[in-house]
Every structure is written in structure tokens, then in C-alpha cells.
Amino acid sequence: MNIHKAVPRVYGLLVAQFNTGLPCSISLRLQHNKADVNEHRAKVMARGLPEKKPLPGVKNIILVASGKGGVGKTTTAVNLACAMKVIEPDKEIGLLDADVFGPSVPLMMNISGEPMLNDDNLIEPLLNYGVKCMSMGLLVSGENAVVWRGLMVMQALERLTRGVAWGPLDCLVVDTPPGTGDTHLSLAQNLPIDGAIVVTTPQSAALQVTKRGVNMFEKLKVPIIGLVENMSHAVCFKCGTRNYVFGSETKRTAEQIGLEIIESFEVDSNMSECINSGKPAIYALPDSIHAEKYRQLANKVFKYISDKETDAKATKQ
């Protein structure tokens, strides 16, 4: 009898061993090589992954992330989205607040009220400063704490992404929560992410966690556009001297992980007023250094998207 035909091959080479000490004694085992193991592992993992599908009507998705909280990530996301709208008024820009537990986009964008549903049972995003916005903060009262387990968070993200009438959008800026948790994993596995901006501050504690965030995106195969450094230094009001009160290790860390610092922002007390008033710096302080740098950042993101689209067309040809 041909044992290899009688027993189907699973993964690896089927090996038969005959025991001459006992009549008709045969033992079977699978001899695996590295390629077999990797193939099997890839197929098992693929079964549990959702199918990555684009958002209807959304051309590009850019994540704004940080390893550590309190580094100005949401401020960056809000002003980036608004700056993209300012320099390209004909472009449709959206802003998604994916921080389910600590949504702050409604405050910074000065939006409130419960969104309406359209005839397709999709949530209509709120519009301010020409930017379409959606946040869990619009669906849950600001005084109520969101106490959810992982599955509920994933369902909320599904509602905030595929349950919203985003289209048409040229770019959706997504403000993600700090850390390297379920939200990032779910977004990267469900949506075609075009690129990520990682926000940090110069402190060693923030930079250490930034490295983890970069490593996470590399594992998820999300391309990183670059680093944004907030609170890089403070300028003395009297003499104009730059004081690096939080250190100056960002450049060295960027070199270590092979990323570019695409924009760097100094400490400015006026930014707090912009946040509290719900008027982004790009509008409240249009002639400030911060506003100019946000416009530069927006231009870099537009260029990144354009270059990516050009490369994709060249690859198809």
C-alpha cells in the first residue's frame, strides 16, 4: 500500500517507520520544514483577520498617533485637517476622533449636538471650519464615562468609520488614542491606511514609547510619513533665547529609527487658548509661526499623498 497516497499530506512530509520487531507495525509522523511551518502559520492567522475594505467615498486615510498621551497629538490632528482645508479649499477633508475613551475633538473643533441619521441609516458628520467631523464625544454625554470592554470598543469604531456618511472625501485625518492598543490594530486591519504621522515631545519617556509606536506601525505594514515634535523648546519673551526645557533628544531618536522630523513646534501659551476656545490656531492665529508650520505640514501630507498615487499608477503600468 502506498502510505503517502492513503494519508493526505497536511503540512510537511509524511514519514513512515516500520517496526520489524512487531508484525505489521507502522508509525506515522509529519516531518516539517521551515517553509511548511510559515505557510501554515500565515493561513491560520489569515482566517482570523478581517477583510481590509476602503471607506466608501474616501480616497485617503492618514492616522495621527502617539505612543504617549499629553504630547499634543489631537492638537496636531485638528490643525492638520484645518490647514489642509485652508490651503486646498476645493478638497474635501474629514476628521475622525478615534479616541473612544477620551474624545477631545468636539472641544477643539467647537462642535456639539447629536448627529442626525440619513435615509441610509448613516450618521451625518458635523461640519465646522469646512471639515467634516465625527467623534464618540458627540454620541455620549461629556459628563458620562465610557466604560467598555474591547469588543464594544471595536463595535464603536465600526460605527464611527463605516456607519458614517463620510464621502466624498479627499482625505480623512484620524486622531487615534495614545498607546499601541486595540484601536490601532483594528484600524490597520480593517482600513487601507495610506500613512501615519507619529507625534512626540523631546522627553526621554515620550521618545521611548514613540519607538514602540513606530515598531507597531512597521509590524502592521502602515507606512510612516514622519515625526512631528511638539514642545521642542521655549523662547524667552525678553531676549528671544531658545530654552530646550524638555531636552533635545528627538533628532537622535529620529536618526536611530530612520525617520524624518517633518515639523517641529515650540511651546506657545496661545495654543492653550485656541484649544479652550474651540478655534484652531490655523484660524485663531493665522499669522503665527504655529499656523505657518501647520500649513507646511499640510503641504507635506498632500505631497506624500500625491507621490503615493503617482507610484501606484506607475506600478500598475
Rank of each mutant, 00 (worst) to 15 (best):
N190R: 12
Q296S: 14
I93Q: 07
N33Y: 05
V71M: 05
S186W: 12
G57H: 14
G179S: 02
D311F: 12
G130N: 06
L96E: 07
I197W: 05
P115W: 05
A83F: 06
H290L: 11
I275C: 08
K73S: 06
Y283M: 13
E124T: 14
G102R: 03
N121C: 05
H32T: 13
I111K: 07
V100D: 02
G142K: 05
E255I: 13
A205L: 15
N144E: 15
L96M: 09
I111L: 12
D97V: 14
N118F: 03
N299K: 14
T76F: 08
S306Y: 07
N270A: 13
A46Q: 13
L172E: 03
E88I: 11
I261K: 01
L28M: 07
L28F: 08
G94M: 00
T180G: 01
Q31G: 05
G195A: 03
R252Q: 11
E309R: 12
L259Q: 09
E255F: 08
T315D: 10
S306W: 03
M116L: 14
P106R: 10
E92K: 15
I93P: 03
C274N: 09
A205R: 04
L172W: 04
K91T: 08
V131N: 01
T253D: 04
V44H: 03
S264I: 07
V105N: 06
I289S: 11
K238A: 13
E39P: 05
A188N: 10
L80S: 06
T241A: 09
D307F: 07
A83L: 05
H184Y: 04
M1C: 09
F18Y: 15
H40T: 14
K52W: 08
T76R: 01
I289G: 00
D119T: 13
R295K: 14
